[in-house]
Each structure stands twice: as C-alpha cells, then as structure tokens.
Computed example of a mutant assay.
Amino acid sequence: MAKYDVDEVKLRQLEEYIDSIEQKEGALIGVLYKAQEIFGYLPKDVQLFIARKLGIFAAKVYGVATFYSYFTMEPRGKHVINVCMGTACFVKGADKILEEIKKELDIKDGNMSKDGLFTVDTLRCVGACGLAPVVMVDGKVYGRVKVEEVKGILDEYRE
C-alpha cells in the first residue's frame, strides 16, 4: 500500500469497508460517507486512497466531495453548530447570535474551537422561518434563540 499522511488504523478501517463492497462501480458517495464518518472529514490523501481503491480518477472523487455540501475537506469539531442566516433569521438577529457563539467559544479565525469540540458554520436558510432566528447543533433545531440563551445551548454539548 502506498504511504498516506493519515492515521493508518483509520485507513485500514476504510480499506476493509471498500474491500467489502461487491459492486464498486457507483459506490463513490457511500465510500465518501464512510470515510468522513471514520476521519471526520475528507483529507486529500484519503481522497487519493479512495480513487486508487475504486479505480477512478482523483478528480472525480474531489468533484463529488466538493459538489455535495455534506462533505468537508476541513477538520470539524465533535459538535457542528449551524446558524441560519436567511432573511427572516438575519432580520431577527442571527448575526448577533453568531457573534455570541464565536465569543463564547473564543473563535477568532476559522470556524472550529481550539479544543476541537465545536465547528461553527452558517446556512442560507433552513426553511424554519417561523422559528427565526434558528440555530442547529448536530441537527437539533433551536428556534427563536436569544443571545442570552447561547451559553446554555453550548453547555448542553460541553464535556
């Protein structure tokens, strides 16, 4: 096996998964899901490994990984916070909620807390305008969020 700059144990786990797939053609998205589940994100070397194991071009793996918003090439925290920035949420103070989250987590640059526990992202619209402003943590929806509620929401996920 070629040398990859990633955790070898995790890479073997991914290899076992890929080897267990009988029909490799059309398996790319499923393999990317599994890889992201194992690694937490899709580093370049993992994408190259997947391309070689599936016998496809690395550009195809990269193209699929960047097309679908579920996949990420950046490490993510254990808990993912999404703040809706759609019109209704923004008008009702989503920008202030986002700033409070960043302040509470001491995030200055990027979108991951220093302890690796949280990743903070924004979404255009979650389709829950009646609950604006909306914050989602690991898919759990918090509606009509107020700045003073941010610490309590984050405390639910701190370890």
Score class of each variant (00 low, 15 high):
79 H>K: 09
33 Y>I: 13
116 G>M: 00
1 M>D: 13
30 G>C: 09
29 I>D: 11
29 I>Q: 13
108 K>V: 10
158 R>N: 09
117 L>P: 05
17 Y>K: 00
149 E>A: 01
85 M>H: 04
113 S>K: 03
30 G>Q: 10
154 L>V: 01
38 I>C: 00
54 L>D: 02
19 D>A: 03
126 V>L: 12
15 E>K: 06
104 E>N: 04
139 G>H: 01
76 R>Q: 12
51 A>K: 10
146 K>T: 00
136 M>Q: 07
97 I>Y: 03
39 F>T: 11
90 F>A: 11
101 I>C: 13
149 E>D: 06
96 K>M: 07
158 R>S: 04
13 Q>P: 07
82 N>F: 15
44 K>T: 04
18 I>T: 10
50 I>A: 01
151 K>Q: 01
10 K>D: 13
134 V>N: 07
138 D>S: 10
5 D>Y: 14
107 I>V: 07
24 K>D: 11
45 D>M: 09
9 V>H: 13
130 G>W: 05
40 G>Y: 08
10 K>P: 14
61 V>Q: 01
11 L>I: 11
145 V>P: 04
107 I>P: 06
132 A>N: 13
72 T>K: 05
150 V>D: 00
48 L>G: 12
138 D>W: 06
148 E>W: 08
74 E>P: 04
60 K>Y: 10
117 L>W: 02
103 K>F: 11
73 M>W: 12
3 K>Y: 15
95 D>R: 10
101 I>L: 10
133 P>N: 02
118 F>Y: 05
33 Y>N: 15
69 S>F: 00
121 D>S: 15
72 T>S: 11
26 G>Y: 03
26 G>W: 03
90 F>E: 12
43 P>L: 01
39 F>I: 08
49 F>R: 02
75 P>C: 12
17 Y>H: 00
34 K>S: 05
99 E>P: 10
12 R>K: 10
94 A>G: 07
136 M>Y: 03
86 G>E: 09
10 K>V: 12
111 N>C: 12
113 S>R: 08
99 E>M: 02
33 Y>L: 15
3 K>P: 12
